[in-house]
Design a protein around this nucleic acid. Structure first.
Lengths: 117, 117
DNA sequence: TAGTTGTTCTAGTAGTCGTAGAACAACTAG
DNA sequence: CTAGTTGTTCTACGACTACTAGAACAACTA
């Protein structure tokens, strides 16, 4: 797994890690059972604090994306369902939103509203 | 326009206002040229601080959703294009994501990624 | 048993969020 | 022109979050 962290972003560092793992699992780059780097190691290689990485892992655990166990690390849990429908829908939405001149912000607001209903 | 603010939410108050205006414009509830309440008035009726409302208005201005002018208030700017395609795509995505068991979080992460590409 | 790894604790700095009050400048309506 | 409206800008404060830092601890692995 490739990690790309932007310290200058307004998105919190831990949230960037969370998003990348989510995407990896959704796209199949990260497969169920696969192990994420130990928090200490990932923190060292990304020049972050261990607590920052652990916070990301804990968010992912609370969301059911990974399982955490001492001595074993973070393991991808979610048995990813078939996401071809989702990916197609995402692509269609992105195209339609772009045609309509909607910002990414407004688009995700619409999606959030639709999902919470 | 109906305003619903939840002070207990983890979403910042100003962000809640921003999202509601975005949705109003996208759905056609708020039409181009329509005027939003004066920041002082809206703050008073929602029991917020004027600065909190103004922050929301400024975010919306920076995004081109409204225009701000002293003495005239906040006016809806964006000439909303036809959004039927977008709404259909949003509904399809929400359904597909729900079938696949994706969280709203992960789904919006996918959308954000697709829009920024 | 020894090493690995997440968990928990305290602690400090920096920044954001929201509130608060005040003065100011551009615009509108009469 | 005048008076009122409304966004803009400034300073200030308390509460909270984000991140870093160091340390000890507990559960698991090999």
């Amino acid at each position: 797994m490739m990690w790309r962290i932007d310290p200058a972003s307004d998105e919190p560092l831990y949230a960037q890690l969370v998003a990348q793992v989510r995407l990896g699992v959704a796209h199949g780059t990260l497969r169920p059972g696969e192990r994420l780097p130990a928090a200490r190691d990932l923190a060292a290689s990304l020049e972050l604090n261990m607590h920052t990485v652990l916070r990301a892992y804990q968010v992912l655990r609370d969301d059911g994306v990974v399982e955490l166990r001492r001595g074993r690390g973070a393991v991808v849990a979610a048995a990813a369902a078939d996401l071809s429908d989702v990916e197609r829908a995402v692509a269609e939405l992105a195209a339609a939103a772009r045609r309509a001149g909607l910002s990414a912000q407004t688009t995700t607001t619409l999606v959030t509203e639709a999902m919470h209903r």
